[in-house]
Design a protein around this nucleic acid. Structure first.
Lengths: 256, 256
DNA sequence: TAGATTGTTAATCGATTAACAATC
DNA sequence: TAGATTGTTAATCGATTAACAATC
């Protein structure tokens, strides 16, 4: 699942699995870093390591896009940056609106990672009349009364909701009615949307709760097996982990 | 995947699958809402609907925790709140530190969903001496020089990184060296951690890129099949979606 | 040609789902 | 007893992984 279009198979038309789609941004970020260092080619092993996945998974993922590598050589960095960008739809401009300009909305408005990836903040919207007209991150805040006209004028199809939980569904309904078909939801609410609208949610408190679960397990384990099992002579020491949480799914970055 | 302890099977000791763990916070939130409305019992069907999953999945998930329901009746709301809280480790207090007090760090510091779920912000930490001593969300900001002593004094085992990407690995190393074993990373960086340390990441730009991918697909589809297929007489209209993105994994909330 | 590395296959594993027997 | 709803089974599906033939 994951798209809100749940009458369709998870694997779409050209058949890229959701889990693969969710990793393409990771590859793209690693490739962009290589590109900035003017590295011409990269092997699946190197790139996988930089992205925090294993190389078999990476090659399998790329195989859904096409045959963009050269056996014995690796992948051309620039070419792959372009192909993945195109696949993700980042070669076009996506105007977005952010609704709810509290601390978080302001943080997102200030986030530099948007523009560089084809996202453009078309407007900041808030229900507080006192905020309207103020500048946040160099962008004027507009009153929520103007929501519909902003969406239509700018051809916005992606909305970001950073309101309190109580306002989220109502804002969502208005966004959808005005033509938005993808929503990134930061409010602690399960949104109901019509078919054809995608919702993704980012939920800090859930992430912390998952960490607490594992933390508790570790504490329980260190009580029961206080003394670690001695390694057999010649046995490999546990390697440093590189896992970054559930890599089937999550998320993109956001520096302060 | 997902825990950073990658020498272990994904399914731990008492055997709760990761996908189930990631949904427990969703159930807990829905149950808490019911509890506040003094609803005494709830069926798997009702609760699943409130949490945005299907009831078979919910019952399967709960079966890993034990037999907490009553056939023919449903689940006792208060009892289930307690059991899930206990399972997630939320019946104890978890001191956390937030490192990097920019827009996002401040937003998190102001987030009310922490305390109510057993998380306590023990300290806000930043590298900027000008910030040290200032108050954010009623909590004094401390200089990063004090990081180690803060961790040790407060027994902090969970750290949140909201620094720019360039500083994240270094901050991570210091947190881990000081005793932190779970990290929530908002920086756009793949962190390398020793075995036994869990990392989860939240990455806004990745979420937007995934939405862009699907948005692009929708645009392509509406070009190729401009005219929607007429519904066969008597065929069910597409039902409103309830999907909230990949529910195997993601995230917790954060109102502005 | 020899070495390196991709792209693909096939096995395995974990997650989802529908169905229904158990039981309140 | 009849109705409701859980807990579990078994089938299905999607994702991961190792291995290796293809090929640069």
């Amino acid at each position: 699942m994951a798209t809100g279009r749940n009458h369709r198979p998870a694997t779409r038309s050209r058949g890229i699995p959701e889990a693969t789609v969710a990793r393409l941004p990771l590859y793209l970020r690693a490739l962009t870093a290589l590109s900035e260092r003017s590295v011409p080619t990269v092997s699946s092993e190197e790139l996988a390591s930089a992205a925090g996945v294993n190389s078999a998974k990476l090659r399998k993922d790329f195989s859904y896009l096409g045959s963009y590598g050269t056996r014995g050589v690796g992948y051309d960095v620039e070419y792959l940056v372009y192909q993945i960008s195109r696949e993700l739809g980042l070669t076009q401009d996506w105007p977005v609106v952010i609704v709810g300009i509290g601390n978080l909305g302001a943080a997102l408005a200030n986030y530099g990672g948007f523009a560089s990836r084809g996202f453009r903040v078309a407007a900041l919207i808030d229900a507080d009349p006192a905020l309207a007209g103020r500048q946040v991150a160099g962008i004027g805040v507009r009153h929520v009364d103007e929501l519909e006209s902003i969406i239509e004028t700018n051809g916005v199809s992606i909305g970001v909701i950073t309101t309190p939980g109580g306002a989220a569904q109502q804002v969502c309904d208005r966004l959808v009615a005005a033509g938005v078909t993808s929503i990134l939801n930061f409010a602690p609410t399960v949104l109901t949307v019509p078919d054809g609208v995608d919702v993704r949610k980012v939920d800090l408190s859930i992430e912390l709760q998952i960490l607490a679960f594992h933390e508790q397990r570790k504490a329980a384990e260190s009580l029961t097996q206080d003394v670690p099992e001695p390694l057999a002579p010649g046995a490999a020491a546990p390697a440093p982990g590189r896992d970054q949480g559930p890599d089937g799914d999550i998320p993109a970055v956001m520096p302060a």
